[in-house]
Simulated scan of single mutants.
Amino acid sequence: MKEIRLKGKTIVITGASSGAGRAAAVEFAQHQPNLVLASRNIDALDEVAEECREFGADVLTVETDVTDPKAVIALANTANDWRNRIDVWINNAGVLAAGDFDSTPMEVHEQVIKTNLLGYMNGAHAVMPFFKSQHYGTIINNISVGGFTAVPYGAGYSASKFGLTGFSEALRGELTKWPHIHVCDLYPAFLDTPGIQHAGNYTGKQLRPAPPVYDPKRLAEAMVNVADDPRTSTYIGSTSLLLKVSHALFPELTTKLTGSIMRRYFKGAAPISPTSGNLFNTVKYGMAPYGGFGIPGKPKAHRKYIAAGLATGLVAGLCLTLFRK
């Protein structure tokens, strides 16, 4: 097994109070770095910090709203002042809102983009002066499959994630003369986290992630590996690569099929009142790494979903090719 060399390094994780961010904090803690954990929920952060300290990690918690550029600058300054260095910055804080585009308030779309896209840009903008001063550093962007596959009924979310992919590519182009500063993108498939419980929901229906749903620990392990050995793009879960290939070969068909599947789900889903979830304020529920939707620790159980999806995509693509002739 490859040795992970993160002991004593300073690692900043945004959105660390629940879900993938919390799973990542615990995974990193086992390698005893200096962890700076940030989110809007300081009480939940303090709970995560205590768990991480049990593994021997030094931990600092900083209440931070990533949509506020000044707050993110303060986070970077605090992290650097604490150990006089920042080795890894993980942009992870994210939100979701679902609903017909025109039925979802524009302030909701705006907040999703401010958090998911501008929040990541705020993080990179705040940490980059430190990286350039010390001539090294790694930014890890947790983007998701939404970075290349559109999510119907999540237009603001799709705009933010597609934007992140472009932002990362542009930033890497600027940094070619800084060979030891890395911008790394992660594309996990659907994760068993509380994120969908926290979502703004204007569909009128209860939301569930589409199977297969993966253990967030797999994303956390990928973050650790990329922090230790930076690489440009990492796909977590076979579904992620399947969707990447499907969209690359049949973009229009993939989007139409996705929309059709979601409409079919809405027909049978339980009704729910509209909610803004955690978009504008933190919440006190769902602070665990897991959301209770998946089958954590059993990756082989996903194969039936992956095989079915692959077969459906190939048949649909073949039919589309034949009909075009």
Results as ranks from 00 to 15, higher is better:
residue 262 M to I: 15
residue 22 R to D: 02
residue 252 E to I: 15
residue 56 G to V: 07
residue 134 Q to G: 05
residue 163 G to F: 02
residue 306 I to P: 10
residue 211 P to W: 00
residue 289 P to Q: 12
residue 308 A to V: 00
residue 25 A to H: 13
residue 202 Y to E: 02
residue 263 R to I: 00
residue 10 T to H: 07
residue 102 D to S: 11
residue 101 F to Y: 11
residue 43 D to E: 12
residue 318 L to Y: 15
residue 25 A to Q: 13
residue 29 A to K: 14
residue 28 F to D: 05
residue 55 F to Y: 13
residue 24 A to V: 06
residue 199 A to E: 10
residue 137 G to Q: 10
residue 31 H to K: 11
residue 162 F to P: 04
residue 258 T to E: 01
residue 177 K to A: 14
residue 2 K to E: 15
residue 125 H to D: 06
residue 271 P to C: 12
residue 110 E to G: 07
residue 268 G to C: 08
residue 79 A to V: 03
residue 29 A to Q: 12
residue 10 T to E: 03
residue 141 N to F: 14
residue 313 G to K: 07
residue 187 Y to C: 07
residue 315 V to Q: 09
residue 172 R to D: 00
residue 148 F to P: 12
residue 128 M to W: 01
residue 115 T to M: 05
residue 108 V to M: 11
residue 175 L to T: 01
residue 73 I to W: 05
residue 265 Y to D: 12
residue 150 A to N: 13
residue 302 H to P: 03
residue 103 S to L: 13
residue 210 A to R: 14
residue 84 N to L: 06
residue 285 Y to T: 14
residue 59 V to T: 09
residue 136 Y to M: 10
residue 189 A to Y: 09
residue 123 G to L: 10
residue 108 V to I: 09
residue 205 K to W: 09
residue 95 V to I: 08
residue 188 P to A: 11
residue 86 I to H: 08
residue 59 V to L: 10
